[in-house]
Every structure is written in structure tokens, then in C-alpha cells.
Design a protein around this nucleic acid. Structure first.
Lengths: 142, 142
DNA sequence: CTGTTAATGATAATCGTTTCTATTATCAGT
DNA sequence: ACTGATAATAGAAACGATTATCATTAACAG
């Protein structure tokens, strides 16, 4: 394994910092979708010195790189998660614990494309989120 | 036509106010999805005296009643729209102008149910939003 | 080592939304 | 029509999530 200094458009470099790997590590270890603030709190709890600003910055970068997935909970808050598959997929997430299952959606993609074409829309992208209660948290309800 | 005083759980009443009808009227006339602030601005522009708080309150009520639909744009902002169909459906919305097309999604509902059942999740609800460029705004791109 | 400069992080600002609360206005009962 | 009880209003302030500012710190190429 080799620590790489990545090339940027104009000869600029990206530096490998403690915080960058800390955020990545946190995402890799946390099992479900978490908010930026939760991730920040978790890192602080582990004794890492990371600013909230920095956490947001890295989450944004990782998200743009496609390394992590971003969804929005019903209140509009952004949640982040490092996913197993880099391929396009959707999520079924527990409202209580953030635990999530990756689900493929060939059917949905096709449906979206068809619908968009029929309406004459272009540059269409879709967001499909499933929220519910995972088996562990289903019991509490009646 | 009869102006009705609706019954509430505990003998309370709901009053018909100028603001309530103003918000409803604005939603009925505006063609696409609009944010609360846009609706508020629109009402003010028309000379209506409505507070932003009041707009939010009515939007919330109307949304709970199922009279209007609420979606979230990619930034997490809530958008509102009075829809033709009261049945369950989804939307294909223009990123530029908010113009939207109602689309049914039997396929998606079934897919969501199947996926949820397979994962053992309960009380699952899904959000499916399509954003793109309507025919009028597709031209601007190349 | 050292200089350059990307990265950091505390603070402040912003944005959408909600709460607080004193005031206003609706409407049922006269 | 009048009036009293109280639902509804609206501005201000509070709020939580996110972003911008900017002085300071620390990677890393040489």
C-alpha cells in the first residue's frame, strides 16, 4: 500500500492529513447512515482533534468522489455512509438506528428513464430513499 | 357552496381566515413546486398581508390533510404544490422552473414493498423524486 | 531543515424553519 | 348588531444544519 499525493488540475497537491483519514476511518467503521454532527461527535469522543468544519469539508469531498453515499432524512438533514458497492444503488434505512441495507433498483432506474422520456425531460436524476424500522426496532411498535 | 366550520377533536373550531384562503389560492394558481418563502413573497407581492410564519403553518396543515404535496429539493429545502390527483403518486420536477409532472409508480410501490419485506423492515415509507429539465429548459444546455 | 501553501478549526454568518407571545380577528351565543 | 372566548396572526427571537471567513498550523517538495 502506498500513500499517494494526488494530482490536481493546476499542479496543486492534496495533502494527507490526520483529519482526512480520521473522517474516512469513522465512516468505514460506523455501520449505518450518520449525520455530519454525529460523525464529528464520534471522532471527538475517540479523542481525535477534528473541527466540525473539517468534517463537513471531507464529507463533501468524499461524496463528490463517490466514495460515500449521501441521503437526506425526512427532516432534510444530510446523512452519510460508506457503502460496499460503488455501483448505483439505493438504501433502506432504519429510522431508529440508521442501520441500512443496500438495495439494487434496476426496476426503478428503468421506470425513471421511461417516465422522463415520456415527459420530454432531460438531465433527469432520481432520489429514491426507503425509511422504515429494521427487525431489531420493529418489535417496539405494536 | 358553503363555508364550513370544521370540527376538531375537542370541540374546538377552525376559523376561516383571509390568510388561510390566500395561501390556498396561491397554491392553486402557481403551476409548479414552490418553496414556502416563494409563496410568501408571491402573496406579499399581490398585496396580501400574510406573515411568513402563517404561510408555514398553513402549508403544514394542508400537507397533513393531504391537500398539497411536499417534496424536498436536492438541497433539503421543502417545496409545496397542490396536486390534481389525491391518489398516491410521484413527481418529475424541473430544476429551473419548478414545473412538474405527476407520475404514477405502481412499479416503484411494488418494488419498495418487496425489498422491505425481504430485509425484514416494517413501517416502511418511500420517497421518490425525479428532478430534471423540462422541455422549455432543456434547450439552454448543450 | 525550511519555505510554500494546503489544510485546519474557531468564530461568525447564513439559510430554512419553528417557537414565543402579545395582538388581532372570527364566530357562537346572545 | 354586540360581545366575549379563544383561534389565528405576525414579528421577533430562537433554532439546528450548513457554509464562509480568516488567522494559525502543519504537510511535504526541495
Amino acid at each position: 500500500m502506498r500513500s499517494v499525493t494526488v494530482d490536481h488540475p493546476r499542479g496543486t497537491r492534496v495533502r494527507g492529513t490526520k483529519q482526512a483519514s480520521a473522517v474516512a476511518a469513522a465512516l468505514a467503521s460506523l455501520p449505518g447512515f450518520r449525520s455530519a454532527q454525529e460523525i464529528h461527535a464520534e471522532l471527538r469522543r475517540q479523542g481525535e482533534t477534528v473541527g466540525l468544519t473539517t468534517v463537513y469539508r471531507h464529507l463533501q469531498v468524499l461524496s463528490e468522489q463517490g466514495v460515500i453515499d449521501t441521503i437526506r432524512d425526512p427532516s432534510g438533514e444530510a446523512l452519510y455512509r460508506q457503502c460496499g458497492s460503488t455501483a448505483h444503488h439505493h438504501h433502506l434505512t432504519c429510522r431508529e438506528c440508521g442501520r441500512s441495507v443496500e438495495v439494487e433498483g434496476r426496476v426503478v432506474e428503468q421506470w425513471a428513464e421511461r417516465v422522463a422520456a415520456e415527459a420530454g425531460f432531460t438531465a433527469v436524476n432520481h432520489t429514491v430513499e426507503l425509511f422504515g424500522l429494521c427487525p431489531d426496532h420493529s418489535a417496539a411498535r405494536n
